[in-house]
């Protein structure tokens, strides 16, 4: 197995994001007033948490640049990031149609489960009936179970 060293980009990216979150939190927590009942007040924990988050993120970046990572060139299988992006896009669309009240939970779920199942099977025509059945069971079955049996509120 061939190995090489590289900078772990994901480590750096996450650390930068967390530094930004830490700075924003620290700025916001700085303006919180003191409490009259005890000396530390509501800002102490968020402020300390923000500073530690920033410090640890800087450490992660430092380690990523200094030490790097060992990357294997051989993958046992081909990852499908594109499929994950498609699934996330479908999921966002699913939430949106409910938020905008274009479809009820029942029909939005039928459509979403059918489409996502078909997509995960690479749109194979022979899997389509199973995807539709799965969608119907989830959409109609769950709506009945949650509203008629468990009395749990569902979106829209």
């Amino acid at each position: 197995m061939q190995e090489n060293r590289s900078i772990p980009v994901m480590d750096v990216l996450i650390a930068v994001l967390l530094i930004a979150a830490g700075v924003a939190s620290a700025m916001s927590a700085r303006h919180l007033g003191k409490s009259v009942l005890e000396p530390i007040g509501p800002g102490a924990f968020p402020l300390a948490g923000s500073f530690l988050l920033i410090a640890l993120s800087l450490l992660v970046i430092w380690r990523a640049v200094r030490v790097g990572t060992t990357k294997s060139n051989v993958d046992e299988f081909k990852p499908r990031p594109g499929m994950a992006v498609l699934a996330l896009a479908l999921t966002c669309a699913y939430f949106l149609v409910m938020q905008l009240e274009w479809l009820s939970f029942r029909w939005a779920t039928v459509g979403y489960v059918t489409l996502l199942t078909a997509a995960l099977f690479d749109w194979q025509p022979r899997k389509l009936p199973a995807a539709i059945v799965s969608g119907l069971i989830m959409g109609l079955g769950l709506t009945y179970a949650f509203t008629q049996v468990l009395y749990v509120d569902l979106p829209s």
Binding site: T91, F95, Y112, V113, L116, S134
Partner: peptide, 16 residues
């Protein structure tokens, strides 16, 4: 492929 969509739907119900 059969398990993932129902899990996401349960997450939606749980979060809501």
């Amino acid at each position: 492929a059969y398990l993932i969509p129902p899990i996401i739907v349960f997450c939606v119900i749980g979060a809501f």
